[in-house]
């Protein structure tokens, strides 16, 4: 099967040729298949967000190539292949929940009827139909993030890029949102790239975890998570879940040790 995302020999340097030059990513190679749920995991400064933004063409690589659906990342962005969710919900304050979800559809000139149908479907998907006329500041953090997910999926992008989307939520809300995201993922069959620094979160959600290390940011290991699908609350109590967490942790630590001796 042809990969959805294919990253070849990608490096990213910020402030090239200046004193504050930073090598954010070095020699990244990664392929992601359709329908995968891939987490980018690592300590802060490992370039996981940078890698996500390279895939989404919000920044461009200094070297190497990013291909998405068989074309360059810039073309994929112009073709509206990406739905983005950030750590902050980034809802527009002056728009109601409904009008926030409609934002991408307006930008993409969807006809009015189609906009309304899609918005209704999306709010049902994230279970917020009753809040369609609310304003963002009237919602809790978890609800705001659900609106952001609905907005990202409204135009049926083939890839969902999520940058620590649950990072600002409390633990209970976070676990609920993880379940919700998995349900949405299985219903929409979207390919998800998910940035996090939480090991249990990455293991619970993903089909594969990409472990990264800092200075310069690079991939130190890719771990298949063969936990049974669909994942449920019980998954977190599965012995295999703990084995996988240990495996990921070892991979992170192994790299730390190597980094210290270098």
């Amino acid at each position: 099967m042809a990969p959805v995302i294919s990253i070849t020999d990608v490096s990213k340097v910020f402030n090239q040729g200046k004193e504050n030059r930073v090598a954010a990513l070095e020699n990244i190679n990664l392929e992601i298949q359709p329908g995968e749920f891939v987490s980018l995991l690592g300590p802060s400064g490992c370039g996981k967000s940078t890698l996500l933004r390279l895939i989404g063409d919000l920044i461009s690589p200094s070297m190497g190539k990013v291909f998405v659906n068989g074309k360059g990342a810039p073309q994929a962005r112009l073709d509206r292949d990406y739905g983005m969710v950030f750590q902050q919900a980034t809802l527009y304050d002056w728009r109601t929940v409904t009008r926030n979800v409609q934002l991408p559809l307006e930008v993409m000139n969807y006809p009015k009827e189609k906009r309304e149908v899609r918005t209704k479907d999306m709010l049902r998907l994230v279970q917020l139909e009753a809040f369609d006329r609310h304003y963002p500041w009237q919602l809790s953090g978890g609800m705001q993030q659900r609106v952001a997910i609905a907005r990202a999926l409204a135009f049926e992008p083939s890839i969902l890029l999520m940058d620590e989307p649950f990072g600002a939520l409390d633990e209970m809300t976070r676990e609920r949102m993880q379940m919700e995201l998995l349900r949405i993922w299985s219903q929409t069959k979207t390919t998800v790239v998910f940035v996090t620094h939480s090991i249990p979160e990455a293991v619970f959600l993903s089909t594969r975890v990409v472990v990264m290390s800092a200075r310069p940011g690079r991939i130190t290991g890719i771990i298949d998570i063969d936990l049974p699908q669909p994942r449920a609350f019980e998954t977190r109590e599965h012995p295999r879940f703990f084995e996988k967490i240990t495996e990921v942790r070892e991979c992170l630590r192994h790299d730390e040790v190597r980094g210290a001796s270098a």
Partner: peptide, 25 residues
Amino acid sequence: NPTAVELMRSYAASEMQILWKLRLP
């Protein structure tokens, strides 16, 4: 904030759309 602008860029929005739908409000 920069993320709000990036959101628009991820939709491949035009400068005019960013002005009308984000910057002006």
